[in-house]
Structure formats: C-alpha cells, structure tokens
Computed example of a mutant assay.
Amino acid sequence: MATIRIGTRRSALALAQSGMMQRAIAAAMGLPVEEVPLVEIVTTGDRIQDRRLLEVGGKALFTKEIEEALLDGRVDIAVHSMKDVPAEQPPGLTIAAIPEREDARDAFISRDFDDLEHLPHGGRLGTASLRRQAQALALRPDLQIEMLRGNIDTRLRRAADGEFDAILLAASGLNRLGRSDAVRGFLSVDTFLPAPGQGALALQTREGDTDHAWVQALNHVPTALCVAAERGAMVALEGSCRTAVGAHGQIDGDRLTLTTEMLAPDGTVRWRRSGEMTGLSAHDAMAQARALGLRLGHEVHQNAGDQSVAV
C-alpha cells in the first residue's frame, strides 16, 4: 500500500496531536508508523504572532496552507484542532473522521492566584480569544484584557514570569502536551461555554479518500454528533474570530443537549439558548444534530442582532 502522508502544523501541540493520529491510523491500516509520515507545514497563523487573528484574516490562517497541500496531492490527511476549522469546507475537501474529544474546558493558569474571582482589581488577563475576553469581562468587568499569542510553552513562560496575573488556555492542549501541572483550576463549561469543537480534532481528506479502514476506526460518533451541533450553531452565528461565540454539546443516553451563546465583546450582554434532540442512532442523526445547532444559533442571532460583533 502507498504511503499515507499526514499534513500538520509545526507547533509542539500540533505535532503531538498529529503523532497521536499517526499511530492510530497506522494501527488501523496495519501499517508501520514509517508508512504514515508527518509532513510539517508552517501556516500563516503560525508566522503572525503579534496580532489577533481577527485583524489578519481569521482562524482559516491555521488551515489554509495545509488544505492547499491536500488539494495539490502533497499530503493525504490533515490533522486540525476542530476549533480552528472554518465553518465551511473548501470544495473538494471533507472532514472524514472526528476522534473522541479531550477535555473541552478552558484552564485557568496563574503564578499567584487560584481562580478568576481572586484576581486583583484591574488584574491583567492574557488571551487572544474574543470569546474568553467577553466571558471573563461578563464576570469581572474590571479586568484588563491583554493580547497573548504564541505556542503553549511561550504562553506558560510569560505567565510564570508574571507578565500577566492570569492566562486562559484550552485544557485539551495542555493535557495532550503533558502540561496539565500548570493548571490552577478549570473553568465551568456553563460560565465559560467553550468554542465550537473545542477539545476535538478534525481529520480532513479529499472527498474521494474517505473509504479507508482508519475512518471508521477513528471516528467517534458521540463526539461527531456533538461537534455537528456545535458547528451548526457556529454557522448560524457566523462564528469567527470577529464574534464571541460559544457552543457545547453533551450526550446523556439517547439525548444530545446543546447550549450556545453569543456575547458582546465587552461582556455586558450575552444571549444564550439551549435545546435537545433524541434518536441518536437514527440514520440522519448527524443532520438532525446540525439542524439543532442551526436552529438555536439562529434564535440567538435574532436576539443579538449586530450588537455582538467586534469593532
């Protein structure tokens, strides 16, 4: 069988995630790991570290070059953090599988303080996420939000050096890198509703390359259903780096519950809706999950109007 090449960003987290998938795909295909090589690709999002993504083109900057390599035939599979994947797929590409999700929560990291509540008045909170900014300000309008980009090690070092009173990061990335020891606490998914798809990975291929053993082996249906609902809400809310949007699906038995929200960038207003669906084993369950997200997202968007868009 021909070599299967995996396209990945070059960051430590991306390589850790892609390495996990490399080993899983090789096992599912009965191939030695050497036959599933990683192809490192530097994206525009990796090169630009001094500005928020909303200022330079949005989160697609983390996927564009890798998707071009897929379409050109230079790689066969791309591994992305699902929360970085734009709402619509480029023509010719598809998300073939979504492995089981890691922890979807945000993590609170601070050298001197135990939680958000105990930060000093006017404390410095580091994040580049408009969603985290809005959710933090909804609880603590006195905080000073300061832009924080860079890889996880860089962000952790800056927090340890006292450049910020606290920073917020995705728990999933810290866990995958073995850096959960840096976490002072985890933020409630109710108060800090995660980004759509947070904690999940997306395995992207060309549309004609989905008939492989690894697709069924790695696709985790409960995660895929939750992500379908979350991304449906993201589409309805025009979720991007210019809007503060959260969405999180959870499954209990045969019921999927989705909560989604949009916030004003300064945290002064938030619009939220929740809903549920049953029949998760139905042949059209994925479409139903997406429809649930679209419906709830449209309800939120209708209530919010244009008040939640960053300027």
Rank of each mutant, 00 (worst) to 15 (best):
G249P: 14
G173Y: 05
L168Y: 03
T43M: 11
V39I: 11
D266L: 07
I4H: 00
L15Y: 03
F164L: 05
A69N: 14
A136I: 00
L71W: 07
H248K: 03
R101D: 05
L263C: 08
F62E: 14
K64V: 12
G58D: 11
R255S: 06
G45H: 12
A171W: 00
M21T: 02
T259P: 07
R158M: 14
R111D: 00
G249N: 15
E100A: 06
A138P: 00
L143I: 00
D142C: 13
L256F: 11
D84M: 10
E88L: 14
D103E: 05
R176M: 14
R9A: 12
A138S: 09
L70N: 06
V33S: 08
I95N: 00
V75N: 05
A217H: 12
A233Y: 02
W214I: 05
A282D: 15
R176N: 14
G92F: 09
L125Q: 00
V183I: 13
L169H: 01
M1W: 01
D46P: 05
G126D: 03
R155Y: 04
G150L: 13
G208Q: 12
R273T: 06
Q135G: 02
G267L: 00
A195L: 09
T44S: 12
E67K: 08
K59I: 12
E88M: 12
A291Q: 10
L168C: 04
F186P: 01
V79A: 10
C226H: 11
C241L: 08
A282M: 14
P222G: 08
Q216I: 02
L292V: 03
M147A: 05
A12Q: 13
G7I: 03
A247Y: 07
S180K: 10
C226R: 15
T127K: 03
V79D: 04
E230H: 00
F164I: 01
K83I: 03
T8Y: 11
R131L: 07
H118W: 04
I98T: 07
T191H: 14
D106Q: 08
S129A: 05
A310C: 15
R105Q: 07
E68H: 10
G279V: 14
R179Q: 08
M234Q: 11
D209Y: 09
N175H: 12
H220F: 06
A264N: 06
A291T: 13
A87S: 07
T278M: 13
E238G: 10
G123A: 02
L177A: 11
V39T: 06
E35Y: 00
T94F: 03
D161E: 13
T154Y: 15
R23F: 09
M234Y: 04
V269E: 13
Q22I: 06
A289C: 09
R74D: 00
W271M: 12
G297C: 10
Q49E: 12
R270A: 10
W214R: 09
V309H: 11
I167W: 03
R9Y: 08
R184F: 01
Q250I: 15
L125G: 02
G178Y: 14
R158P: 06
Q144A: 09
A244G: 02
F192Y: 15
D103I: 01
D84E: 11
L93T: 03
A96Q: 14
R74K: 06
L38N: 06
L61I: 08
T127N: 02
R255L: 02
R155Q: 12
R270C: 02
L93N: 01
R176D: 15
I98W: 01
E55M: 08
G208M: 10
V245P: 07
G45W: 13
L31Q: 04
T154D: 15
M21S: 03
G7K: 08
Q144H: 04
R206Y: 06
A217K: 08
